[in-house]
Design a protein around this nucleic acid. Structure first.
Lengths: 220, 220
DNA sequence: AATATGCTTCGTTTACGGTCGAACTATGAA
DNA sequence: TTCATAGTTCGACCGTAAACGAAGCATATT
């Protein structure tokens, strides 16, 4: 009767509106403080503190103390993956009670999904990388090819400089808006960081929208 | 402030223990009646009826009236995908309060995940199919190759006989136990059905365990 | 030291939702 | 028709947890 992992614990954590807002805000990949998250969630700091404690205890977020601030990030890419999948369901199954405001088309076009590029631009880039043989779907997961390695180093991206965390180099993540894969993983994060540092793209503050500049559009 | 789809609605639906049990039971892919689900969930029929109404209203399950019975199934593969992803989080993030009972290793070895094969056997089969060039990762998704088409028809599986639903022919779905991809989609369902009809495998009643017979093990 | 800022803990209130008993509807069997 | 089984609806109860005010720590800044 109790054979599968206990879904309801995690799901009920995400199920509270305030906590869902917190997690959605953290999908940007930026580390946010408790007060910032309180503002995002629309509740006071006290209740936010309680929520953050529960999310931490549930393993969904990871705290980091820095001076008198406490920064929070999502605990892993798996969490981000689950959240995107849930957004897909929520967007599909009616109940999209956010009327398509002015920023919505921009969100579908290009947005940040836990520090990598998502939306229409994200899936286009993913397709292009596959078509040019720079990344490859091997047995189990996505892998970087040799020519891909050359390509990215030629672009001025130092692949070995990435922190050697346990997260894979390449990973696919599916969009709730496009319902197709885009590139995640260390390479996905590195690419977006590169776009920003070269001025090809910039994040719009207080949202997940990414806007590409004119020179940035020629990269495809 | 309200730019992404509303996650909390869906998540809170899954967040209730009784409903989570119901959804987990439906992961077997079999259509179950309200009373069966009530038994699964451990609550009375009245409350189950309320839960089922909410799950239906939320678009997670789909009812089907058959005589005086009412059968329920998951609404789509996307729902199953989200549930598996949640199981992955729940299994990873501590709190696996189901002590590894006798059936647990069997579950990790081979189980049914919304009518297709999952677990160790599932990912092995997936890898083997890819390695032999029978299915291919193209731009966006998984595709059946021509040689794959021949192979399966040679095996006695009539691909065109599958109901031409909107769900894709091939699809990858990731395991909570193996943390790797296995084959889903119409082909995945068809293969498992084929295994059962030829006597290579059989489902263990009242669980998601699949047990392979001796002749079935030679198929790899 | 003194003050300010960021966050946590405590205690209380409040409200929402899960639960079941009992009565009602619907479909099938005798 | 009558009885039985499957499911729904209603109403009331109850528990839990979300929310905030107020006070308590902790880490800066002056």
């Amino acid at each position: 009767m109790k054979d599968s992992p206990d879904i309801s614990r995690v799901a009920s954590l995400i199920g509270d509106p305030a906590r869902a807002n917190i997690l959605t805000a953290l999908m940007s990949g930026k580390a946010l403080t408790a007060t910032e998250l309180a503002h995002e969630a629309g509740v006071t700091l006290q209740t936010t503190s309680a929520h953050l404690a529960k999310l931490d205890e549930g393993g969904l977020i990871r705290p980091r103390k820095e001076g008198r601030h406490k920064y929070f990030t999502l605990a892993s890419e798996d969490v981000a993956h689950v959240l995107e999948a849930l957004m897909g369901l929520a967007a599909g199954s009616g109940h999209l009670r956010h009327r398509p405001g002015p920023r919505d088309p921009e969100l579908r076009h290009a947005r940040v999904c836990y520090n990598h590029l998502a939306g229409d631009m994200g899936t286009q880039m993913y397709d292009s990388l596959i078509a040019r043989g720079l990344i490859l779907h091997s047995d189990k997961a996505l892998n970087l090819t040799l020519s891909g390695r050359d390509f990215f180093t030629g672009l001025g991206i130092d692949l070995d400089a990435f922190p050697a965390s346990r997260s894979p180099m390449c990973r696919d993540c599916l969009d709730w808006s496009e319902r197709r894969s885009h590139l995640a993983g260390r390479l996905g994060r590195g690419l977006l960081a590169h776009f920003e540092s070269t001025g090809w793209a910039q994040r719009i503050p207080e949202s997940r929208v990414i806007r590409f500049t004119a020179p940035g559009k020629k990269s495809l």
